[in-house]
């Protein structure tokens, strides 16, 4: 379980995240939603130790992240940020191999290679495993990065707006993969999402942030509700049930 206790972060005088406390359940998909500047990405980055918190504690399976060895954490938790610009020229396979670094420190064993090949197969990247990243389309590149995170084989997988710049088809593809990761492999997935309907269709729990604070959290069907959404986004969002999914209509 991930436990966040009274975590705050401020830049200059601006409080980006303020006294946030939160529990994230194992084996489920949890989405962070909220308007721009709500502190979603900052919170995610703090959970994954990419940025340091000003105060508060974050426990992963009972251990405070500030006190853990970075390498041990890397076997428990992985993060993928939305912009993954890499300066060097890598093939898909090279990239996925990097995911094994916490285990192999660069010298891959048979076991490591098995994980790499599995991750590539899982993300359906076999055909392009020797292509260079700069030759791939946005969706393929995103899949390659997710394959790297899979090879890292962590209990917790954090993704910051993984659908950014992807078209509908690829967005759905990525979300389906994440769902399979949770259902089939029992991973805990935490995602920052912009589109409430993706959050609604794929997540088990939703955490809504606004102005650096959590204003609502709960099961998906509790949050995707006209009343609650008005509170989060300050706009009227009609919620309809289509099939088994609740869809918010906010276009007009």
């Amino acid at each position: 379980m991930v436990e966040v206790r009274n975590v705050s972060k401020q830049y200059g005088n601006k409080k980006v995240v303020e006294q946030v406390s939160l529990n994230i359940r194992k084996g489920k998909i949890t989405s962070f939603i909220g308007p721009n500047g709500a502190g979603k990405s900052t919170l995610l980055s703090m959970i994954s130790r990419l940025i340091t918190k000003d105060s508060g504690e974050i426990y992963i399976d009972g251990a405070e992240i500030g006190k853990c060895k970075s390498n041990d954490l890397a076997k428990k938790i992985s993060i993928l940020k939305q912009s993954n610009h890499i300066n060097i020229r890598l093939t898909v396979k090279d990239l996925v191999c990097f995911g094994r670094f916490p285990y192999s420190q660069g010298r891959l064993t048979k076991e490591d290679w098995r994980h790499v090949d599995e991750a590539i197969a899982y993300m359906d990247l076999q055909e392009m495993q020797d292509s260079y990243l700069d030759q791939l389309s946005g969706g393929q590149k995103q899949r390659a990065f997710i394959a790297m995170v899979m090879a890292q084989d962590t209990e917790y997988i954090l993704l910051d707006e993984p659908l950014n710049n992807l078209d509908m088809k690829h967005s759905v593809q990525i979300m389906k993969v994440l769902k399979r990761l949770a259902r089939e492999l029992g991973k805990t997935v935490i995602i920052v999402l912009h589109d409430i309907n993706f959050a609604s269709c794929y997540s088990d729990y939703i955490v809504a942030l606004k102005d650096g604070k959590i204003i609502r959290e709960g099961r998906t069907e509790e949050i995707i509700d006209s009343q609650v959404l008005r509170e989060i986004y300050d706009m009227d969002i009609q919620v309809e049930t289509i099939g088994s999914n609740r869809i918010g209509i906010y276009f007009t």
Binding site: S48, K69, A74, I79, N87, P102
Partner: peptide, 21 residues
């Protein structure tokens, strides 16, 4: 020495992969 390859991915990836950056 073992960290250098990972460092060339950039800070965020390096931290994610367990380098005490």
């Amino acid at each position: 020495m073992k960290y250098l390859d990972v460092l060339s991915l950039g800070k965020e990836h390096a931290v994610n992969l367990g380098v005490p950056y």
